[in-house]
């Protein structure tokens, strides 16, 4: 475990922030703070004066951190995007996982690397969880639409559930479309006709 660094994580979502902080704690006795409020971000960061700032690449407020790259007062420390020239893979992994790290001038790469590694792992993990959640939600929505379409067919044509599903599946195959799309079209059309 290396000597602690002062780290700020900019993240609005509390659960994500906690997951990331947990991962970082494993790499050393760091002083970690979470900023979840994006207004006045540059000022808040300047007040805390951390060694490392971690922020989601998708966060539009990231551009405000760019102000800090122009250190204008004597007490301010210039920051730069973390780029490890000797380890291109790490920089690429960081970008792909969606984390951007800003590091103060003069901090040794070997002190920063474990933190970035942990951040990349955690960002990947929370992204996977988020993707899975979105996928589950989507599947549920589709399930609902298919059930409604089945109900419409059963009522209109006096067929049972199995036959209604068979009809949806056959139409989807004939038209080279997904069952969920055929069902959605049917539900929309039925809504217009009723």
């Amino acid at each position: 475990m290396s000597k602690g660094l002062s780290i700020v994580v900019v993240e609005i979502d509390r659960d994500r922030a906690l997951a990331i902080v947990d991962g970082l704690r494993e790499t050393g006795d760091h002083d970690i703070q979470v900023i979840s409020e994006v207004s006045g971000l540059a000022r808040r960061l300047a007040e805390r004066n951390p060694d490392i700032v971690l922020i989601d690449i998708a966060n539009p407020s990231r551009d405000t951190i760019e102000e800090l790259t122009l250190a204008t007062a004597p007490l301010e420390r210039p920051v730069a995007m973390f780029v490890d020239r000797s380890d291109d893979g790490l920089t690429r992994a960081a970008i792909e996982s969606g984390v951007s790290a800003y590091v103060v001038d003069g901090l040794r790469p070997d002190r920063v690397k474990p933190v970035i590694d942990a951040a990349v792992t955690r960002f990947n993990m929370v992204r996977r969880i988020r993707d899975e959640l979105a996928e589950t939600k989507r599947a549920l929505e589709e399930r609902k639409v298919i059930d409604r379409a089945k109900g419409l067919l059963m009522k209109a044509r006096g067929i049972d559930e199995g036959a209604a599903y068979g009809l949806l599946r056959k139409t989807a195959m004939d038209q080279n479309r997904r069952i969920a799309d055929v069902a959605a079209a049917l539900v929309t059309a039925a809504g217009l006709l009723s």
Binding site: A58, N59, P60, R62, D63, M81, V83, I95, E96, S100
Partner: peptide, 15 residues
């Protein structure tokens, strides 16, 4: 892109 720094980084690092 969500921000100008993202555009620049994607370009600089080959994304």
């Amino acid at each position: 892109a969500p921000s100008w720094s993202s555009v620049r980084d994607w370009l600089a690092f080959g994304r």
